[in-house]
Write a protein that binds this DNA or RNA. Sequence first.
DNA 1: CCAATTCCTATACAACCTATAGGATATTAT
DNA 2: ATAATATCCTATAGGTTGTATAGGAATTGG
Lengths: 147, 147
Amino acid sequence: MLTDRKVSLMMISTKGTYALRVMIDLAQHENEGYISLKAISDRQQVSMKYLESIVSLLNKGGLLTSLRGKDGGYMLKKPAEEYHIGEILRLTEGGLMPVSCHGFSEGDEECRNVNSCLTFPMWQKLDTLINDYLDKVSLRDLLDGNI
Amino acid sequence: MLTDRKVSLMMISTKGTYALRVMIDLAQHENEGYISLKAISDRQQVSMKYLESIVSLLNKGGLLTSLRGKDGGYMLKKPAEEYHIGEILRLTEGGLMPVSCHGFSEGDEECRNVNSCLTFPMWQKLDTLINDYLDKVSLRDLLDGNI
DNA sequence: CCAATTCCTATACAACCTATAGGATATTAT
DNA sequence: ATAATATCCTATAGGTTGTATAGGAATTGG
């Protein structure tokens, strides 16, 4: 039986980049209390409705503190240096980029026997590379241009 | 005026993975003369027509030698160790993953002045990281499991 | 000539990303 | 009480892109 091994590489879409902009915006307004979606929407020029779906992910992921009602909004839960880009992107980019190796076809003796895919280790290593880098960059690093 | 800077990250779809399988297949049958699309299609279980569009890119990119007509087909132009995964993927994945920074909105003093995007350097570095790695892995490395 | 094969262009389908819309409910400040 | 706001839900529409197929023209070897 051929096992089907997959690697899911990080994928970056607007959802992820907007999420970063939200996080940056919140970081830039630390210590100003709760920031409303409207304020972020105005500053970042993204519709409130679209932001809503993105911020919702960040909030459910435990990255933010929220307050309902008048003067409510969102705040960072931790100082900016304790957030890393990797976790933000993995949270919002639910749909990743799957790279699968099907173990080649019937005719391929080598691959059937080894039951592995020749490209699989490469994808794995690439995936590790990407995530390791993005996990080293903090939100504070972005704000400070410390890249 | 706000400039709109973009980075295009490597994107991996079936087009790219099939291209790799084709290249691996051709490498596994080095010194057997021209290999027809039909042979590759049979071995790799991908329709000839789809393979055609992919091989066409590889061929136009100068990675292959082709011969039309009866007993025609494709051959690697160089030994497998002289091909690197990066060039193969960049060739076939014409559509990349664009990550743009719009320089934030009107309200953001910092970003207007510096005329740059806070996330831009990170995307650039990530892009470099990915391409550097894939440019170090050769086709031969894949065949030998030398990852 | 004939068969095999590359080469070229067009097209259809599905999936997904992007974004918007509307509304119902809960919570908070004043 | 009222206004403002988060929270939650569903639906939907447009556009883009990935995936794959189809048909035929040009070329080559025998």
